[in-house]
Design a protein around this nucleic acid. Structure first.
Lengths: 348, 348
DNA sequence: GTTAGCACTCATTAGTATTGAGTGCTAATT
DNA sequence: AATTAGCACTCAATACTAATGAGTGCTAAC
């Protein structure tokens, strides 16, 4: 499907003008601001064609044209030039990150804030997910006679802990033995692997034999520990710049705004949205979106990694009339920096 | 300052009607709906008095009256009857909590959601604060030759951990010795106490002598550990029901709405707002508010405790025209249940 | 002390006319 | 055959006006 140069230029003009103004774009505007050598009449003819092909739409008879989802899609895939972030902006991202170097959580929060500030849209970010990583070390600590603290360190350096209560008295040396045994048995496994592993797998062979004297204790402790391992995965979502959306005339109607904010309140949904991202940078435009709640927004998502292993993702939400090229490059730069710094942070 | 029965009834009528309708209340309305035995003219006279006293205001000449902050204050302090939650609602709070019994964080998040759902305003909640609690146990774990994991358990049962990196090789037995020493030295101290303690205090006396052979290691490790102890306090704020505010005509203007949402984006501010709460239930009305950003809202805050020790607080934000009596009782019930359950959870 | 009556104020609403941006179509031009 | 100028038509947005009515303060009567 080749449009021809002029049609392509006109479509580009319509989209970019609409992105800036949020107003339907008329033939005269295009002739004046973009294709100065072509008369409005000609442009009108081309626009009629573009409309027939489904790339643009008319809100009402005597209005200019507005890009359709299909139009944006073509624009993102074929027309727009990937905007190179100027050095100043790229530097900014890098610098801001280095300043926060410290706790992972703070870094992630900061990334979200930065993302919404730079794009001026709404940003969401998922905290690193345990599930995707491998267990590196597990340690049991007795807090008092009936309480044990389990500390889990993964290869991505993420640390979780959980308190196991109501355990019967365990002698320190048994606890140590158990810790060692668990380590030799579980370390290196990913959380997903463990999910597949049942208790029986853990109790077989050498392990069972070596621990067998403390059968009762283990029977009590292991299930709870497994429970913890499998379900302790936090699904935190940070969100920033919700207020940014209200700047756009798309949400000038307070009801539209409320609807949107209600969607943002459903953290579970946001999590699923982010979780479906596999590619490096993913663009969902309007009706393309898998979740109906976002059918009149666009969503740009990307993943970040530690040591090449995907452990989380970020996203930017905006009106379909979004500055795709700018946002894509920012998201791209952001995830790369995030990955790099996280990897570095945890490598030591 | 005694108003007299009729004036008080009229003020109450104005406030409660305005809470429901968000429209200025006129004399005729009051005569019809509230004081059916008094004529509008009489009520007008009383209203003129009330206005002179500063309890109500007139948006413009030919409009009804609207309560002032001072009016709301009188209402909250003297007039309104503390609404008793019906059993169904109180049960709901209790039940919802018991269902979530599990991780603290999830419980807190849930509380926030519940609060905004029940009140239909915006809720904020602070995660339990380490600072307020005492250190119960600290454990150092070697992850690898240059990385140590410090795990902190407080008397409120909150567990934090932090990774100390770039530490020189430490033998396991030294680490154990150090752990023991730290415990005997620090356990029982509140985080605030520790803040007052300088490194010298820690290094004096018996401790310094006993550890003295490992001077270098300690010099390297202790500062970093202290840093961690003092700054690891997370300041997480959960927020729910932001969209609720857009229901109110007060935020019918999209700019007002945006302004409000921008305030909600400043987590730091919200934290400070919550942190100033000392009383059990605190009500700040409009201009009374310490933070100018909230000068046209009202804020109801309360604290929750573990074992009688205050460790966090929750708040509800709404327009000054807020259903004070309802919200106060819900917040009250909520914090009590939260305290009870948290205490129970960690007692075992 | 309370109420009825009246003149006055002023935000809100509805109705109306005007404007102007934009279109599609046709005929003229290149 | 492609482009452009010209023209009639559509329709949202704007400005203006008049009408409405809720509410007040004041005065005089009860």
């Amino acid at each position: 499907m080749n449009l021809g140069d002029r049609k392509r230029l006109i479509l580009q003009a319509i989209i970019e003008d609409y992105i800036n103004t949020a107003e339907p774009v008329g033939s005269r505007t295009i002739s004046k601001k973009y294709l100065t050598n072509t008369s409005p009449a000609t442009i009108r003819n081309e626009m009629a064609d573009l409309e027939e092909m489904g790339f643009i739409e008319q809100p009402h008879t005597s209005a200019g044209r507005v890009p359709s989802d299909k139009g944006y899609r073509l624009y993102v895939d074929k027309i727009m030039e990937q905007k190179k972030l100027d050095n100043i902006q790229a530097e900014l991202i890098k610098k801001e990150f280095i300043d926060t170097l410290g706790e992972i959580d703070r870094l992630v929060k900061h990334a979200s804030k930065l993302l919404s500030n730079m794009t001026q849209y709404t940003s969401i970010i998922m905290t690193p997910q345990l599930k995707k990583t491998c267990l590196k070390h597990i340690q049991l600590i007795a807090i008092n006679s009936s309480t044990i603290l389990a500390v889990i360190v993964t290869d991505a350096g993420i640390v979780k802990n959980s308190v196991l209560k109501g355990i019967r008295d365990i002698a320190p040396d048994v606890l140590e033995k158990l810790t060692n045994a668990l380590n030799s048995k579980l370390s290196g496994l990913s959380m997903e692997d463990m999910n597949r592993l049942s208790l029986e797998d853990i109790f077989t062979g050498e392990f069972a034999r070596s621990m067998h004297v403390h059968g009762e204790i283990i029977e009590q402790l292991i299930p709870e520990l497994m429970q913890t391992l499998l379900y302790s995965d936090t699904k935190d979502i940070y969100l920033d710049g919700a207020a940014n959306m209200l700047k756009f005339p798309e949400y000038g109607d307070i009801n539209k705004a409320r609807e949107f904010l209600n969607v943002l309140d459903e953290k579970e949904l946001l999590f699923n949205v982010l979780n479906q991202t596999n590619n490096d940078v993913n663009v969902s435009i309007g009706a393309e979106n898998q979740f109906e709640q976002f059918r009149n927004c666009s969503l740009i998502t990307a993943t970040y990694k530690i040591n090449g292993k995907t452990i989380g993702s970020v996203g930017v939400i905006g009106p379909t009339r979004m500055e795709y090229s700018k946002v894509i490059s920012i998201v791209d730069c952001m995830t790369h920096n995030l990955s790099e710094i996280l990897t570095k942070m945890l490598k030591v």
